[in-house]
Design a protein around this nucleic acid. Sequence first.
DNA 1: TTAAATTCCTGTAAGC
DNA 2: TGCTTACAGGAATTTA
Length: 290
Amino acid sequence: MPELPEVETLAADLRPHLVGRTVVTLDLRFPAIVRYPDPALFTELVVGRRIEGLTRRGKYLLHDLSPDPSPASGGGEPPAQGERLLLVVHLGMTGQWRLVEPETPEPDHLHAVFGLDDGRQLRYRDVRRFGRLLAGTERELVAARAIPRLGPEPLDPTFTGADLYRRLHGRRAPLKALLLDQGVVAGVGNIYADEACFRARLRPDRRANTLSRRSVTRLRDALDSSLRQAIANRGSSVATYRDAWGEIGGEQERLQVYGRAGLPCPRCGRPLSLVRLAGRSTVFCRRCQR
DNA sequence: TTAAATTCCTGTAAGC
DNA sequence: TGCTTACAGGAATTTA
């Protein structure tokens, strides 16, 4: 599933190809994949705009669009904070965002095709349709609750153990449930929540309010190293994740606990346990994680 | 406000 | 072989 490292890989790969391109056509095969605004308005907002930037926030891909459909050369002042016009893509579980030549055969479950001014196509494909497309200004999307308030970026150097501790203390939910809460920290999903808990040697079912400051600092560092290693390996392809070129990542072979229930713990060799937590399968070592 | 449960969605695999 | 069932899970929504 696409989590922070997978979305980061997509953004970095696509950025040099997309920045400067203009969206000239949009073929919405499954209009309900557009969650905001309505599909007609979405099309109106996106078609004719130039893509001026591509960034990631949490698990969201943010495409900055030119403020004017037919921008005068030279450009004006950059938009005020919150006024950036964005094309937003969230991949959900099985979403794929690919840049292809137009003659590339069409796969099943293709929901949107964006034609670019260089002839290539940006295709949104999503078997389970948990993903979504949105467009609007940053301010508008948040005000309309089309995008939730997101917690800090775990790889931001200003995100400290003390910061995470403040967000966890007083919460009685299991640690894992809070790591999955995008309002606590953005971009972490089931894979890297389990990996970070293992690295930090913390049981994922520990009540968050029982964690010491020291443990939470270890957890912050574990999140950082798990996510950075995954980015270095171009993400995990555990199910249907593919990069912008349709290729798989390399991190799935290096995961220490996710998907390895019953297999030996990489640290102590005892079989890894499987439990259900926050509605998610959760794998951890009963001996190494306390 | 918080926590837990429910819902959406379809391919895959297990069981009979 | 063919059918049924459980399972995978991000996050919005609902319930307590």
